[in-house]
Each structure stands twice: as structure tokens, then as C-alpha cells.
Design a protein around this nucleic acid. Structure first.
Lengths: 250, 250
DNA sequence: ATCGCCAGTTGACGCATGTCAATCCCCGCC
DNA sequence: GGCGGGGATTGACATGCGTCAACTGGCGAT
């Protein structure tokens, strides 16, 4: 093989300008806040969004009880959010990927109420919340889109409640895999082959299962020819079969 | 018994004026949207909020898939919201009481995504959403308060995820009772004695348990002297004992 | 006031998932 | 490239909750 050229990013001199997010240029705009803004509005948004911030794998973007200042659009990477109850139990409340918004839990109390931890080296665009509210008062489209984003988060959580309240282990894991698949797909990645960024324990916490149950269920899916799984690498062989699993009996 | 006097409501001539909500007069304002508004802003809000609507016990305030037009402030009464998955499973996603806001799940898709059903005869104040957004652009306080309400709903659902994901049956029911107690208390009702508006089945759906388990756990709590329960009437005898239950081991 | 029905209670039993433990095997670090 | 450790797998066993079923009793309709 011939040596591949250096990644483009390394050839561009790093200035505040290149570090600065330009929403108007961002290929995630359909997933993030700027959806449906005019050219002019989009450029106003560029001023709102702060300089991109790198979060190394394993470190916190924010912690519960910290002062809430901004929400964050994920530019690249992968996060988990979790809640630690007073008695120490951990519940993973979600996994977030590029184009999704983090931190809306902090608005109500002006303090974050959960932890956000990068599961791989990531970049986020901080959106100072007070300024977002100001700008929302000028740009109705932005206001409305932000409301939609928050509402969708509520609806997503309803889905998790259905999962945790009514589904059996197999169904939970099938739903989880199909959800990841759909989200990777809509970002232009292969929907049927991906690397899990989280451990079995984190999957288990999210799905209300113990890690051994997650592991066993993965193995069963593999034996049944639904997926092939090797550590964190997953290939979905029979998506329809997984879907069928979710609506069996009951 | 002597015949009781007619209910007061029937003695007042029904006019648009009496049916109309006056947020500026409402004793629920601390719980609902108008928190922190000036006198002038409050009166603008009075124009926003539509005529109060009565919802009879057992009937729907809205249904999943219906067009979303408004959110609803509960003036009086008690509701449940539920999601029916494609395969028919029902998950109760919440119980709502006076001063709480219903319908924010519909903003994202412009269609409601769950059902809201009155568990007793109730009254709601419809808040046309497009007009709420308009007014939010004029009144920053209102905008901010609405964002807080949505954020708190997200945080509430995180709490439910912790409950469903990590707690055992006893802990779930204890958490449920203490939550109801706190909410009744903050509305001026006796925190330690109340009527459940929902069935064992609905409690079970909310808590991810079968109705038999709910019933058995109630009985166990009674045997242990934590509560006294007779059908839908509950008295909390030992709140501290219930709290301790929730943080035992783990 | 009475009846019928639906909600609730209680018991017996089974199963899905948790618990505990041993072993394996990547992955990243030096 | 080798080594160490944490993540993953797998097995044996335990148990909490679900399932099925019988029975009770309040409440609302008439």
C-alpha cells in the first residue's frame, strides 16, 4: 500500500476561525438546531455557538450538580448520560451521537442533573443557553426548532419507559440494536455493521439488565443467526428477525 | 338526610366570563406557567389561555396521533398518560395533577404521541401552542419558565428510568407513594392520607410490575406497619420507613 | 336497597433474570 | 512484541416476580 495522505485537518493551520464552529457550514445541520433557518439567520447562529470543545474519551462533558450554562450540540463522537441515585445506583439514561443535543436536563434547576461522559474522543459545540433564549426571541424558527428538540427528548424517554416497563431481555436488546442501527444509518454510516462504543455493563444499565444477561442475549442472537458479534463489533444479519422479536406474543 | 344544596357551580349563571380561566386569579400559578410574571404580563397571559374545558372521568383529553394544537394546564383533577406500542403493550408514562402541564410530547411531531385520560372529572386550561410561542418571544420570563417546565419533565422521566431500571418491587412502590405524598402535600392536601385515583393495574403499568405484585406489596407494607391501605384509600404511617426501604443495600 | 361486575386479594407454582464464580481474551501500554 | 488488566463469556444455582386461578368485596347502576 502507498502511504495515505495526511488527514485534511492537519494541513489547515489551526486558528480560532477553524476551531470555531460554523453552523452554516456544518453537515449536521439537519440533525441539530439550524434546521430550516434562512441564510441570514444561520449566520446569526454562527455567532451564538461557542468555540468547539474537545472532550477526551472517558472524561466528563459535565457533571450532575454543576452550574448549568449551556447546552451542547455533538459535532463528533459518542456520549453516555447517567444519573447516580443517592444510594449509588447508576442508571444510564441515554447514548448520544453526532448531531444530537446534550444538557437540556439542566434548564429546570439551573444545575445539571446528570453526568455526560464521552465514550470516545469527541467534539461538542457549546450553545450558551441565555443567548439561545435571546436569539429564540428574535428568530421564531429557531425557537420552534428548539422546542421540537426538547419535545423529542421527552418522547424518546417515553420509548425507554416502554422498553424498561414492558419488554423482556431479548426484546430490549433487539430494540436497542435496531435503534443504534437506524441512527448510524441516518448519519451515513453502515446501518448493519458498527462498533459499540459502550461496555456490556453500560448497555445493561441502560436496558435495566445485568451485564451477564446482555452478554448471554448477544450470544443467543448470534446462535440464532440474527447478528454476528465479536466483542464490540456488531453486524446485523437479519434486521427483520430482530424486529419480529420485538412484537412477539403479548 | 336532608337534601344537600345544589353544587355552587350550578347556581352561577354560565357565561364565557366564568368559564374563562383567569391566570392572574388562579391559585395554581406557582405550579403552572405564570410563575414570576409581572401584573401586566399576567394579564396578557389571560388572553392566551383558552376557555377552561371539562374532561369527564374516563375520557380522553387527547389521543396519540391526533393533531397537536395546544398544551394543557390542569386546573383540577387527575390524569394518566400512556403509550400504546404497536404490538399493543400499554405503558403508563405518568400521573398528572392540578398545576401540571400536559401535552408537551406533541410538539416534536405536531401530533400527540401518547394518550391523556382523566382519572377523575377534571378541568384543563388549553394553551394554544403557536400563541404560546408568539408570546414567549415577547415575554422572556414566560419563555424561560416554559423551558424550565419542559426540562423538569425530562428530569422527571430520568427518575422513572432509575426506578424502572434499578429498583425492586418494594422500592418502586415506596418511591411511588412518597412521590404522590410529596405532590399532594405541596398542593395543600394531607401528604400522608389520600385516595389513589388509579387502579392497581395502572400503578403496575407505571412501575413496570404486574397488578398482583402491586397488590401483594401493598399488603406487605401494611403488615410491616408502613402504611394502611384499604382499596384506594392510603395512609402513610411511617414515611421514614418507606424512605429507608428505597436506599436499602445495593 | 339490591344486584352484578370489575377491581382487588391471596395462594401455588414456574421461569426469566440475577448472583456468584471461573475462565477467556482483547486492547492498550510499555 | 509481550504483558497485564479489565471487559466479556459461560456455567451453576438462587430468587423475585410473573402467571394462573380462585375467591372476595366495593361501588355504581338501576
Amino acid at each position: 500500500m502507498t502511504p495515505s495522505p495526511k488527514p485534511v485537518a492537519q494541513m489547515i493551520p489551526i486558528t480560532t476561525h477553524t476551531l470555531k464552529v460554523a453552523c452554516s457550514q456544518c453537515n449536521l445541520r439537519e440533525l441539530c438546531l439550524p434546521l430550516g433557518l434562512s441564510e441570514h439567520e444561520m449566520h446569526k447562529l454562527d455567532d451564538l455557538v461557542g468555540a468547539r470543545r474537545r472532550i477526551k474519551r472517558g472524561t466528563h462533558l459535565y457533571r450532575a450538580a454543576e452550574q448549568f450554562e449551556a447546552i451542547f450540540a455533538i459535532r463528533s463522537g459518542f456520549f453516555k448520560t447517567d444519573v447516580i441515585a443517592e444510594d449509588g445506583r447508576e442508571q444510564v439514561t441515554g447514548f448520544q451521537m453526532a448531531g444530537e443535543i446534550l444538557g437540556m436536563d439542566g434548564i429546570g434547576t439551573e444545575h445539571h442533573t446528570c453526568n455526560a461522559i464521552a465514550l470516545e474522543d469527541s467534539e461538542v459545540c457549546p450553545i450558551p443557553f441565555a443567548r439561545l433564549e435571546d436569539m429564540s426571541r428574535e428568530i421564531g424558527t429557531l425557537q420552534h426548532h428548539f422546542h421540537k428538540v426538547m419535545s423529542r427528548e421527552i418522547v424518546r424517554e417515553h420509548g425507554v419507559m416502554v422498553l424498561l416497563g414492558t419488554m423482556r431481555a431479548e426484546e430490549r436488546l433487539a430494540a436497542f440494536l435496531l435503534n443504534l442501527s437506524q441512527r448510524f444509518g441516518s448519519r451515513g454510516y453502515a446501518p448493519n455493521e458498527f462498533h459499540l462504543r459502550m461496555t456490556r455493563d453500560e448497555i445493561g444499565s441502560y436496558l435495566g439488565l445485568k451485564l451477564e444477561t446482555v452478554s448471554r442475549t448477544f450470544s443467543r442472537f448470534q446462535d440464532d443467526g440474527l447478528i454476528s458479534v465479536q466483542q464490540k463489533h456488531v453486524r446485523i444479519i437479519d434486521p427483520a428477525g430482530l424486529k419480529k422479536l420485538m412484537s412477539r406474543n403479548c
